[in-house]
């Protein structure tokens, strides 16, 4: 109870402090939202920190080609995450409500920000590994598989957070939504291609429509 009161009373200031709290006490934001404390600033700080985390991870991925692609990948990664989140928010809201969660807009915002923040933090934790393999690998196919693996790991932790933040929602529904989020992210990556490697003189965003499965097949070749 004392810990709960502490969480309500002491809200960290600054983006780094908020992300640190998210890592150490992931439910702090949700508890504040449930207690009726304003969480707007907290949500904005977590989202701002998440954007920075995704940008850093994107930059690490861009080192596969190096040069301008580092900056391009750093810019694209947050766009990919935000677009994916925007497309998947309605389904999270409806899945949550249908599963019996009392999901207000405030709670939804905090849960979503926490999920995105935690995914971002795990990606930053994996950043040295991503960077190491990006600078040393020569096979695009290999780094794609590596990023898929790291992405899966980040989503696993994001899923754990979602399950804890929405205990009313059955784990099957959380898993279903995570799968949806993952598949949508693949299509958004395809839409924003090329992210890791760009042919000389090729545009920053390739024109032409493509399904993610076809894109993946093309990358494997």
């Amino acid at each position: 109870m004392t810990g709960h009161n502490e969480i309500l009373a002491v809200e960290p200031r600054g983006v780094v402090g908020t992300l640190d709290e998210l890592l150490r006490r992931p439910m702090a934001g949700t508890e504040r939202a449930q207690a009726g404390v304003s969480v707007r600033a907290w949500t904005i700080r977590v989202l701002a920190g998440s954007v920075a985390c995704w940008g850093l991870y994107g930059a690490a991925g861009g080192f596969f080609q190096g040069g301008a692609q580092v900056a391009i990948a750093a810019a694209k990664a947050p766009i990919i995450m935000l677009a994916t989140a925007a497309l998947c928010v309605p389904s999270l809201y409806v899945f949550g409500l249908l599963a019996g969660a009392s999901l207000t807009h405030r709670r939804l915002a905090v849960v979503l920000a926490g999920f995105l923040g935690l995914v971002g933090l795990v990606l930053v934790g994996l950043l040295p590994i991503g960077w190491l393999f990006s600078v040393s690998s020569t096979s695009l196919s290999f780094v794609v598989w590596l990023h898929l693996l790291l992405w899966g790991l980040a989503l696993f932790f994001g899923g754990r957070f979602l399950s804890a933040a929405l205990p009313e929602v059955p784990s099957g529904a959380v898993l279903l939504w995570l799968t949806l989020f993952c598949v949508v992210s693949f299509q958004v990556v395809t839409f924003m291609r090329p992210v890791l490697w760009r042919a000389p003189g090729a545009p920053v965003v390739e024109e032409g429509k493509l399904f993610f499965l076809d894109h993946f097949s093309a990358v494997q070749k």
């Binding site: 925007a86 309605p90 389904s91 899945f95 958004v188 493509l210 399904f211």
Partner: peptide
Amino acid sequence: ASLTPIAWFFTWCAP
């Protein structure tokens, strides 16, 4: 209806 944004995005991205 909640999946419509995703369905629209995938359809829009299709060749």
